[in-house]
Structure formats: structure tokens, C-alpha cells
Simulated assay, not measured.
Amino acid sequence: MLRLLLVDEQRMFVEALTQYLSTESDLWVSDSAYPSETDLLDRARIAWPDVAVVDIAILRNRVHEVLRRLEEACPDARVVVLSSTLDPEPAVRAARAGAAAWLPKERGITELVEVIRLVGRGHAWYPPEVLAEVLCALRQEAGPVGTGDDPLAVLSVRERQVLGVMAEGKRGRQIAAELFISVQTVRKHTRGILTKLNVHTQLEAAMLANSGGETPVLSETTVRALPR
């Protein structure tokens, strides 16, 4: 069963979504909160969600900060961002902040539930209307990495192992269990990977890993298989 954290300022929407999700046997809302609440991260730690659904409407320029803090509080949680617009700019900001999915609210609850399940299985999802611009922005920011014929040569042996498992769609505790290391060690290596590859998110790092370090051109189907 997927544990969910709902972060939205529209209480009626949260209540309606919670009621709808209560009919789904594989989904459970462990908590809900306003994005501006001072105890949001504490509540997130207690809820320990598999997926956090976050409305970015009131966050504006704080999107990156809030999502990063959520990741620190719940490193294994994947984030689905809700938006009130199809403007690609906030979608790019969400991707840079590490969101696994970005969904306009107009798509409705049924599609949101489908995206939650996809993200819960380790996939990423962005709508076709903005996907091209998101991938283009991430590719441009990634830029050339490494040296010589192996752009990933800047990584240590252990960092390559972590990145390899990450590129399979796993993260956090799953990576730790597979490599027999602690979650804290995974976090340390992940930070090192992002810094050395000059990328902002695990999605970008996984894109580079799956392309052997070359700047990839990914289809919508392919990007769904990558972690955030």
C-alpha cells in the first residue's frame, strides 16, 4: 500500500481527494498539511509517505526550497507536483527541484491517481505539452561532464554503483539494501554524484547514466522509467 502526504492550501480539494482515495485499496492518505505550515516537515517525517502530492500554487519561488526540505525529511518519498497552469516554466522548476511528476489540476482526480501509482512504482511523469521543454532544460543544465571518453570518470567506484542502482529506478532505502550500506551513506554519495556531474536532481543523473554520459534525447515512455 502506498502512503500519501497531501500538501495543499485548498482544504476542500484535500478532503475530496482523501475521500476518493479511501476507496482505493492500494492507497492510504497518512496525513495532509498546508504548504505554509511551520510543522510541515515534522508532519512529513511522522507520516513517512511513499508519495507526497504538493500544490505549488502558493510556493512560487520557494518551490525548490520546499521540495528540497521535503526530500531531506523523507528521502524515500517521491513528489507529485500539482499546478493550476500548463505553462512549462513551473514544470521546469519542479523538475529542477527533483519532482518525479508534474500534473495540471485540470486533468482531474482520476488521472492524478494514475500518476500517483506510476510514481509509486518508481516512474517519472510529465505531460506531453511540457515534456520536451523540461528535458531540453535538464539537458542544457547538465552540460558536458567528466573528462576524456568516459564523462562519468569523475565518480568514485562506490558512486558509480549508487548511480547504477539509481538509474534502475531505485532510491534511498532500496539502494542501501542492495549495496549493503546505510541510508546516510546513500545520501552522502548521492550529493557527491550530483555535485561531480553538475546536475541538480537524481532524474538528471539517471539520464546521464542511462546514456553512458552522453546528452540523451528521451521519449516520454523512456522518462517514465527514470527516478526523480
Results as ranks from 00 to 15, higher is better:
residue 1 M to I: 11
residue 2 L to Y: 14
residue 2 L to T: 12
residue 6 L to V: 11
residue 7 V to E: 05
residue 8 D to F: 02
residue 12 M to T: 12
residue 12 M to I: 10
residue 14 V to R: 14
residue 17 L to S: 00
residue 17 L to E: 00
residue 22 S to C: 07
residue 22 S to F: 07
residue 23 T to K: 14
residue 23 T to P: 05
residue 24 E to D: 14
residue 26 D to W: 04
residue 28 W to V: 14
residue 30 S to P: 05
residue 31 D to T: 00
residue 31 D to R: 12
residue 34 Y to G: 13
residue 35 P to A: 10
residue 35 P to D: 13
residue 35 P to Y: 01
residue 36 S to R: 09
residue 37 E to Y: 09
residue 38 T to D: 15
residue 44 A to R: 06
residue 45 R to H: 09
residue 46 I to N: 06
residue 48 W to A: 15
residue 49 P to H: 08
residue 50 D to S: 10
residue 52 A to I: 11
residue 52 A to K: 06
residue 52 A to Y: 03
residue 53 V to K: 01
residue 55 D to R: 00
residue 63 V to C: 06
residue 65 E to M: 09
residue 66 V to I: 14
residue 67 L to F: 00
residue 69 R to F: 02
residue 70 L to A: 04
residue 73 A to F: 09
residue 74 C to A: 13
residue 77 A to M: 04
residue 77 A to Q: 10
residue 78 R to Y: 09
residue 87 D to N: 15
residue 88 P to S: 09
residue 88 P to C: 11
residue 89 E to T: 13
residue 92 V to D: 03
residue 92 V to C: 07
residue 93 R to S: 11
residue 95 A to E: 09
residue 96 R to T: 06
residue 97 A to L: 05
residue 98 G to R: 06
residue 99 A to K: 09
residue 100 A to Q: 06
residue 103 L to D: 06
residue 103 L to Y: 09
residue 104 P to E: 12
residue 107 R to K: 13
residue 107 R to P: 00
residue 108 G to R: 02
residue 109 I to T: 15
residue 109 I to V: 15
residue 109 I to A: 13
residue 110 T to N: 10
residue 111 E to P: 01
residue 113 V to N: 03
residue 115 V to S: 03
residue 122 G to S: 05
residue 125 W to T: 00
residue 127 P to G: 09
residue 129 E to F: 07
residue 131 L to F: 08
residue 132 A to T: 13
residue 136 C to F: 14
residue 137 A to I: 10
residue 138 L to D: 08
residue 138 L to Q: 11
residue 143 G to D: 00
residue 145 V to P: 01
residue 146 G to D: 11
residue 150 D to E: 08
residue 155 L to N: 08
residue 155 L to T: 06
residue 157 V to M: 13
residue 159 E to T: 05
residue 161 Q to G: 14
residue 162 V to L: 02
residue 163 L to K: 03
residue 163 L to P: 01
residue 166 M to T: 12
residue 166 M to F: 10
residue 170 K to M: 12
residue 171 R to N: 12
residue 171 R to K: 12
residue 174 Q to I: 03
residue 175 I to N: 01
residue 178 E to Y: 10
residue 180 F to Y: 13
residue 183 V to T: 13
residue 185 T to F: 01
residue 190 T to I: 10
residue 191 R to D: 15
residue 193 I to L: 09
residue 193 I to S: 03
residue 194 L to W: 08
residue 194 L to E: 11
residue 194 L to G: 04
residue 195 T to Y: 13
residue 198 N to F: 03
residue 198 N to L: 07
residue 202 Q to G: 12
residue 202 Q to V: 15
residue 204 E to C: 08
residue 207 M to F: 04
residue 208 L to C: 04
residue 209 A to C: 12
residue 213 G to P: 12
residue 215 T to M: 14
residue 216 P to E: 01
residue 218 L to P: 05
residue 222 T to R: 14
residue 223 V to H: 02
residue 224 R to C: 04
residue 224 R to G: 08
residue 226 L to T: 02
residue 226 L to G: 02
residue 228 R to H: 11
